[in-house]
Amino acid sequence: MSSKPRETANVGAGLWKATGMWAWLFFRISGVLLAVYLLAHIIVISTGHFDWLDRLMKAFDNPLMVILDLALVVAVLYHALNGVRVILMDFGIGIHRHKVMFWTAVAVIVICFAVFAYVAFTFIATGAGVNW
């Protein structure tokens, strides 16, 4: 089967079905989004025009932008925790418990997201961060 052209091979997916398919697909989508975001982030933050950046960052302190920030947090959390799952698989941890591993990762994502969402909605409601 190694003679099969890569274009037609079942690339990257491993087993193209069920939960693993979605785990792989969202990993890939979030990865590409984060790569694009990272490059844009570096271009903008590194310009050195402090006045311009201060005005830009003021513009980010409105509810719509905070919600978009939360969407970014979801992409980061999903990519990070699914990545941890993949690395654990590389070490042979959980290879007979794929679904348990995946849903454990999702549970950790939900818990972490709850913290970020709490801070974000507190900021939207009160205009300030959470006083821990």
């Binding site: 950046l53 201060d54 960052m57 003021k58 980010f60 302190d61 905070v66 920030d69 947090v73 980061v76 990070a80 990545g83 941890v84 913290v115 970020f116 801070v119 974000a120 900021f123 205009g127 300030a128 961060g129 959470v130």
Partner: peptide
């Protein structure tokens, strides 16, 4: 994972609304 956790906790949680 380590450095981004520090980065996100400092920017998104500890300093939300104060970033300049």
């Amino acid at each position: 994972i380590v450095c981004l956790a520090i980065h996100l906790i400092l920017t998104h949680i500890a300093n939300i609304g104060q970033i300049d």
